[in-house]
Write a protein that binds this DNA or RNA. Structure first.
Length: 681
DNA sequence: CTTAGGG
DNA sequence: CCCTAAG
């Protein structure tokens, strides 16, 4: 048989030479893995990404304490100067930002806060205030808690205002087209604080933010197009069928959630370095945080609950800062979790404005569900395109608790993390039209009244918390999965955030978290149809009402409660088992294909080759799956359980298994690789 | 971090 | 899937 299709083109470094990839290439021979990250060409960054990236940079550069190498230089002594520096850095970064989209991050001091705080911040890092005093200072407005901090020993008071959807909306709508919003992050200080310094400058948004929405020619949302379409078209793939092939680069489901990327970033981004240790961040939203890490919320993961319990792949990757991130460690994450002090953030909401302009005649249908009723694009044909630009998103509030003794670097890190977390997973995008929330995701823009000629100022976007209140609700995880998330979410929006990877390849989507990821990468993946935007498939899930915010917010709003609450509820922190995600036939196929080519024993490569986009599915998972496949293939069909795997695939499994094990043994003695070629034929 | 295996 | 031992 012809097994391994040995194409010389393997990705492996050595790759080419003869036939098949060598079963085992010495690591040294392999290219640097870290570098291997693939980048997807066509992706663009969206506002979310930008924000995230900014944050990432911030973090990254932030201070040595964060970095591995620079560990030595804890930022500890913060002199006023440091702060300044910090600020500058930020600004610089901001300006550098490729995309330029970005927003500012400002630290504000609560007006009523003690002056000291401000001082501390500015002056130096370690804040020596009396914790108590601080907590006392909380605003009344803030629903959050002071208590928790005490426990934590954090000095900053966390403040959280809960925001209601309404508020969000209103904010969003407001309208000046131009207003930029900056994500404000309130750390310990109040949000309204009078004086704040902007760390980042508002960039000109002009720069073409990556098209959140616009792209012209394509007609559909550039980025997301695929996804969307797919979703619509294939609400769900029948289990048995092999709908899509997973095949290499594309497969997998995770893509959908945009969250992923951002999230990922987050996690990775910070290195939990202990140095900073003290501060950790916890999201209020239980979900957020966790999710973040996991990144994917849809499918199986229900939102919050399951997220990523263990640090596994998902978290790991954060391409953001580090290239190598792919392989970043769990450790970080773990550490992070552990130490985390807590930062609670409120949901961030944000709004964005965008302007719409004319556009091409393309259709926007993409976002609408398949079934739309009324008109499709009845209008004139001319401009069916609505171009929008989101100038910036504001992250309304972020609560962060951090010890006074924390370094500035840790503060940065914390903020970054919080931002990433939010971006990553905890948010979904809402669309507001004339101040009203447009909840029907299936409507076409036209139907929703968002026409090219109308849009400009009437359209708003909001970021809403994306967690689900209780995982329990979901029924079959599969079905439900995504819906929640999607539900309210505007298709477009979801899309937007995405692509992290594209940018520099850095961000991976790994995280499951967040928003729908959309990275281009995923295109092929959906087979699982994890998310069916349309939500059409399952009735139950129906959009039900998981409106984003509603349920969730309340729960978490009590800050005080939150912290403890989360833990109490489920401290997923360390570990719950990951949810089970049976391999689909297409995934199996992809696996088989990859193994045929790469052989057994090179799981990391298999992962990269065929499941790079599947955030969940670690190489260990793949190896395990292979193990089970081999077993499955060995037993009688009657004894097999679960979704049946086509016999053809099983046969290939056995053949590949046999082939590669043979190779392995052959090589052992000292057989030259060449031998294999003969064998093959 | 990866692999390989056992649980 | 998880966990661990070994590289």
């Amino acid at each position: 048989m012809v097994f391994p299709k040995r194409s010389t083109s393997e990705m492996e470094s050595g790759g080419g030479s003869h036939v098949a990839e060598m079963p085992r290439v010495p690591k040294s021979a392999r290219g640097k893995r870290s570098i291997r990250k693939k980048e997807s060409p066509g992706q663009m960054m969206c506002a979310f990404d930008l924000l995230a990236s900014v944050a990432g940079k911030l973090l990254d550069e932030g201070d040595g304490s964060l970095g591995n190498t620079s560990a030595a230089a804890p930022v500890v002594d913060a002199s006023p100067k440091d702060v300044k520096q910090f600020k500058n850095e930020v600004m610089d970064q901001d300006s550098c930002n490729e995309s330029a989209l970005v927003s500012h991050i400002a630290f504000q001091r609560p007006a009523n806060h003690h002056a000291r705080k401000g001082e501390d911040l500015e002056g130096s890092h370690p804040l020596n205030e009396d914790p108590k005093a601080k907590s006392g200072t909380l605003d009344k407005e803030s629903s959050m808690i002071s208590c928790s901090k005490a426990e934590l020993g954090c000095n900053f008071a966390a403040i959280a205002d809960r925001w209601s959807p309404e508020s969000v909306e209103s904010g969003a709508c407001t309208g000046d087209a131009v207003a930029n919003v900056m994500p404000m992050i309130t750390a310990g200080f109040h949000k309204n604080a009078p004086d704040m310094f902007n760390l980042l400058d508002p960039m000109d948004v002009d720069v073409k933010p990556p098209p959140l929405v616009s792209s012209d020619s394509t007609g559909e949302m550039p980025l997301y197009g695929n996804k969307i379409r797919r979703s619509t078209s294939f609400p769900r793939v029948p289990k048995g069928g092999m709908g899509f092939t997973v095949d290499r680069d594309e497969d997998d489901d995770d893509k959908s959630s945009g969250c992923t990327h951002p999230i990922t970033a987050t996690n990775k981004g910070f290195r939990p370095n202990c140095t900073a240790g003290h501060s950790s961040v916890k999201k209020l939203l239980a979900c957020k945080y966790r999710k973040v890490a996991p990144a994917r919320m849809h499918k199986g993961d229900l939102s919050c609950s399951d997220v990523d319990r263990k640090p596994s792949f998902r978290n790991k990757k954060m391409y953001y800062t580090r290239q190598r991130t792919q392989r970043s460690t769990f450790k970080r994450r773990k550490m992070f979790d552990r130490h985390s002090a807590l930062v609670s953030e409120e949901y961030a909401k944000s709004n964005a404005k965008f302007t719409a302009r004319d556009s091409h005649p393309a259709s926007l249908e993409a976002n609408k569900g398949t079934n739309s009723m009324a008109f499709q694009k009845s209008h004139e044909t001319d401009d069916c395109h609505v171009k929008l630009r989101i100038k910036s998103f504001k992250v309304p509030e972020l609560l962060i608790e951090i010890p006074e003794t924390a370094t500035v670097g840790s503060l940065k890190k914390t903020v970054l993390e919080a931002v990433n977390a939010i971006l990553g997973g905890g948010l979904r995008v809402g669309v507001l039209h004339h101040g009203k929330k447009v909840r029907d995701d299936n409507k076409t823009l036209m139907q929703a009244g968002i026409a090219h000629d109308d849009v400009l100022d009437n359209l708003g976007f909001s970021l809403e918390p994306n967690c689900t209140p209780h995982p329990s609700q979901h029924s079959p995880p599969e079905d439900t999965e995504f819906l929640e998330t999607v539900d309210t979410t505007e298709p477009l929006a979801r899309i937007a955030p995405t692509d992290s990877s594209s940018k520099h390849g850095e961000i991976d989507a790994s995280q499951e978290l967040a928003l729908a990821p959309l990275s281009a990468n995923y295109q092929g993946n959906d087979h699982d149809s994890v998310y069916s935007p349309g939500g059409m498939s399952s009735p139950d899930k129906a959009s039900t009402n998981w409106r984003a915010i509603v349920p969730v917010t309340p729960a978490y709003s009590n800050a005080g409660a939150i912290v403890p609450a989360n833990k109490a509820k489920r401290s997923p922190e360390q570990g719950q088992r990951r949810i089970r995600r049976p391999f689909s036939v297409s995934e199996v196929e992809a696996l088989v294909l990859a193994v045929e080519k790469l052989g057994t024993g090179r799981w990391r490569d298999v992962k990269l080759r065929a499941f790079d986009n599947a955030k969940h599915r670690t190489y260990v998972d793949l190896k395990d799956k292979w193990k089970t496949l081999v077993h499955t293939a060995s037993i009688s069909p009657q004894q097999r359980r679960g979704e049946p795997v086509p016999q053809e695939l099983l046969d290939r499994v056995l053949a590949a298994q046999a082939y590669w094990s043979q190779q392995q043994t052959k090589l052992q003695p000292k057989t030259p690789p060449l031998a294999e070629s003969r064998l093959l034929t």
